[in-house]
Each structure stands twice: as structure tokens, then as C-alpha cells.
Design a protein around this nucleic acid. Structure first.
Length: 431
RNA sequence: UCAGGUGUAGCUCAACCGGCAGAGCGGGUGGCUGUUAACCACUAGGUUGUAGGUUCGAGUCCUACCACCUGAGCCA
């Protein structure tokens, strides 16, 4: 048998015979000629099957092929202007691994519910394939960025004994004779790790039982969370800015083809420059008072507010110093203005909204203890967390970036559900 | 959870004022040596989301329920 190749590398075998293994993406036939679009995960190539070349029996068998049937085709790689991708495979022999029954997803239109019900198959489609490739690139860019800055990857637990933030709803689960909760953030554990390693990050799934039915929410999503000892809000923001620039650089370098397939306008991504506009809450609130009559000063921003703010700039906007009341208990208050928190939200451009939330953490034992009490959180569950302020407390900061929201923005999608292989939402846990 | 909307063939959708349930795609059969979501001919495919009600007659009107979609709150 001829040597194996992946479709993406087929150009190296021009004029030679190779064996390709994959699935039938589409096919059509015309008398003694049969065209099979072969898909192997790395690309798509058209195999041309002539009756006279492969023989009567093999040709007849090839006509049995259906969408997504699995095959092994050996043939000579040729260049052909008529073929998409420029290369074609002149089939010499075909081995059918399996004939698939009627495939539910046709190249025609489908509704979102049907596609989600068939998500396990939908992932084979070219647009979904492109989104997952961009997701992969973004995750790799994040890892490389933190590795270059000498961060240590520290994995946070998924089972937790109590609310990390205490504000949002948690998924509860049985844990032998007691209860446990699925994590909604690795942050508190990263704070412990930062005191051990200096600069750390975690990357893992997080869970929110919020009954949110919007295009921006999943109940299970992935978050990358750096945490740095001896770090203030300004330095924290610089790291966040650098991370976003790294992602843009990598995606524009390596995934142009995928973004083009997704019909993503690259111009808004290409014009992004540092430094990103930085704006304290009060300044943002003043803008919103003019633009949105429903906005109440002192409140957190709603989705329409974020859209208004992000559309005023071509680069992501960093909004800091929110009122302490709308933020979590661990946020450090600004010593200059104690009713404002040393926190930051990063809003992606083009109305995509919040992709990063973070800030400087409260590092004073007494202040933190009082906040835990004020928020009516179970004190004993935070004993270990308070220890971090007892044994060598230092200023520290970090943030969390939602991977799926970032992918939604980079890909220019209108809904978050296609950015994760198997989305979990309020109304979907299958497949 | 609230507010709107949708539910008809495997899929995407038609069906006028309440009057014979229809098309394209996909499937099957046959044809074609250059197709790209091919084309031509033939063909199979239905408990109109579920349960009630009004009516001579309901896909169509009414009630309840279910599922999904869009948006809001909350958040990354």
C-alpha cells in the first residue's frame, strides 16, 4: 500500500501515490466518473474515481458510499485548477471501512435546536471545525503567554466546600455524607498558590447555576485565571492587556483561513493597539447617563451598557474602580476613595461585552474578616483563605478571562454556544 | 424567573376568511467522463408538539401543558 498522508500535507506527494483515510464529506457522480470529497480532520480533498482505473467492481462499490462513510483511498496526487484547494487525488484503489446510514446533517440549512441535538456530528462541519481551531489557538496563546512570563500552572480543584464568591448560584452535589459544590472560580486557590510560587495561573472548567438564558452564558465554561503576588491593579491591567494582544497576534498569524471561513471581518481585530483605553467607573457612568436613560448611577453595568461603552473605542476598554457594593467581598477598596474597589472589567470591542474581570485582592486580615461577616459568608469555610493574610500577606492581584466569550468575540459569532465543543446551558445537557 | 415568538415529512419551510396535507433538500431506483450545495426522470416518506374544547368540518379558532428560539436580570 502507498504511504499514508494527511490531506493538509498532500502537496508534498505531488505526482506520487498516497493513501488517505477519512470520511465522505460529499460526493457526486456522473456516469463512469465518481467524485468523493474526502475529509480527514486536517482538510478536504476531492478524490476522482474513474471506472476504467479502479475496475468495475471497485467502482460499483464506491457508488454505495454515503455521507460520512469511512474510507481509505489510495491514489496519485495531482494539481488541478478545477479542484478546491488545488490538489486532487486520482484514485487507484478504495477500501470501504463502513457505509454510514442516512446522515442527518445535510449541506443545506438546519435549525439551531436540531444542530445542537446533533452536536456530536455537527462538530464535523466546516464552520464548527474552524471555530474549534480558533479556540485551540486562543488557548495555546494564553498558555504560551504565561509560560513566557514565568508563570507556573497550578490546577484548582473542581469540588469545593463552599462558595468562592458567595454571590452566584452554585451546583450542589453529594460528597459522601456531606455536600460539595462545583467550582465557580479557581481564584481563591490561586491566591494560595501565588503566595507559594509568586506568579501562577489556572485553566479549567467553572460552573454557574445561574438561570441565565442569553447568548453570552453557559452553565459550564472555561476560564484562565492568573494571580500574582506583589502586584497592584495597574500591573494587573498591564498583564491583561498583554494577554489580549498575544491572543490577537497568534490568531491573526495562524488562523486567518479559519476566520475567513467564518466570514469574520479582520479589520476590527487588526486595528487594536495598546495602551487600551482605561476609564474609571465614574467616567463610564457619566457617558451612560447621556446614552442610556435606564442606567442608574451606582449600579453595575447591564449588557446594553457594556455595548454602549465598548462601541466607543476600537480597542478593548478597561473599566476600573466600581462601587465596592456591586463587587465581590475579596476586592480591595481603594485607599484614596474607600467606596471604590481596585477592580477592572475588560470589555471587548464591537459590543461583545465583558471578557475579563479581576482586580487587586484585599490583603488585610481584619478588613477581609469584616467583609466576610458583612456578606454573611460561612467564616469557617474561609479559615484557610484568611490564613493567607495571616502568614506573610502581600499586595496581590489577578483576573479571570472567559475563554468562550473571547472565542465568540474573535470569531465574530453572535452566540456563545458554538464556541465550546459540547455546550451546557440551562436547557441543554445532551449530547 | 419575566416578556415576546415558534412548533406541519429525516431537514428547511408553504398551506389565502376554518373546507382534498404541499414543495425543495436529503433517501431509494435509473441515466450521464469534470462534478463542487451538480443535473434529468421516476419513487417512497405525515397521529400537523401533547391533552382537551368550539364547529357539519380544525394545521388554522379557544384553554392548559411541553419543547425550543429571542431578549432582560446575573455574570466570565
Amino acid at each position: 500500500m502507498a504511504p499514508k498522508s494527511y490531506i493538509a500535507q498532500v502537496g508534498r506527494f505531488l505526482g506520487q501515490e498516497v493513501t488517505l483515510e477519512g470520511w465522505v464529506y460529499n460526493h457526486t457522480h456522473k456516469g463512469k466518473l465518481h467524485f468523493v470529497m474526502l475529509r480527514d480532520g486536517t482538510g478536504i480533498i476531492q478524490a476522482v474515481i474513474f471506472r476504467d482505473t479502479v475496475g468495475e467492481a471497485a467502482f460499483e462499490k464506491s457508488l454505495q458510499l454515503t455521507l460520512e462513510s469511512s474510507v481509505r483511498i489510495s491514489g496519485i496526487v495531482t494539481e488541478d485548477k478545477r479542484a478546491k484547494g488545488g490538489f486532487e487525488l486520482q484514485a487507484q484503489a478504495i477500501e470501504i471501512l463502513q457505509i454510514a446510514p442516512e446522515y442527518p446533517i445535510s449541506p443545506k440549512e438546519h435549525g439551531i435546536d436540531f444542530l445542537m441535538e446533533n452536536r456530536h456530528l455537527w462538530l464535523r462541519s466546516s464552520l464548527q471545525h474552524a471555530i474549534m481551531k480558533v479556540r485551540h489557538e486562543i488557548i495555546k496563546a494564553c498558555r504560551d503567554y504565561f509560560d513566557q512570563l514565568d508563570f507556573t500552572l497550578i490546577d484548582a480543584p473542581i469540588f469545593t466546600p463552599a462558595a468562592c464568591e458567595g454571590t452566584t448560584t452554585l451546583f450542589e452535589t453529594d460528597y459522601f455524607d456531606s455536600k460539595a459544590y462545583l467550582t465557580q472560580s479557581g481564584q481563591l486557590y490561586m491566591e494560595a498558590a501565588a503566595m507559594a510560587f509568586g506568579k501562577v495561573y489556572c485553566f479549567g472548567p467553572t460552573f454557574r447555576a445561574e438561570k441565565s438564558k442569553t447568548r453570552r452564558h453557559l452553565t459550564e465554561f472555561w476560564m484562565i485565571e492568573p494571580e500574582m503576588a506583589f502586584c497592584d491593579l495597574q500591573q494587573d491591567m498591564a498583564v491583561a492587556e498583554g494577554l489580549i494582544m498575544k491572543i490577537l497576534e497568534r490568531v491573526l498569524e495562524n488562523r486567518r483561513e479559519e476566520l475567513k471561513k467564518l466570514e469574520r471581518d479582520l479589520a476590527p481585530l487588526e486595528v487594536i493597539r495598546t495602551p487600551f483605553p482605561r476609564m474609571p467607573y465614574d467616567e463610564a457612568a457619566a457617558i451612560l447617563k447621556k446614552e442610556n436613560p435606564d442606567f442608574i448611577e451606582g449600579d453595575d453595568f447591564g449588557a446594553p451598557d457594556e455595548t454602549i461603552l465598548s462601541q466607543q473605542h476600537s480597542s478593548p476598554v478597561m473599566i476600573s474602580h466600581y462601587p465596592v457594593g456591586v463587587k465581590a467581598f475579596y476586592m480591595k477598596a481603594d485607599p484614596q476613595q474607600p467606596d471604590r474597589a481596585l477592580c477592572v472589567d475588560v470589555l471587548a470591542p464591537e459590543g461583545y461585552g465583558e471578557i475579563i474581570g479581576g482586580g487587586q485582592r484585599e490583603d488585610d486580615l481584619e478588613v477581609l474578616l469584616n467583609k466576610i461577616r458583612a456578606h454573611k459568608l460561612p467564616e469557617e469555610a474561609f479559615a484557610w483563605y484568611l490564613d493567607l493574610r495571616r502568614f506573610g500577606s502581600v499586595p496581590h492581584a489577578g483576573f479571570g478571562m472567559g475563554i468562550e466569550r473571547t472565542v465568540t468575540w474573535i470569531c465574530g459569532l453572535k452566540h456563545i454556544r458554538e464556541t465550546i465543543p459540547f455546550p451546557r446551558t440551562m436547557s441543554r445537557i445532551y449530547p
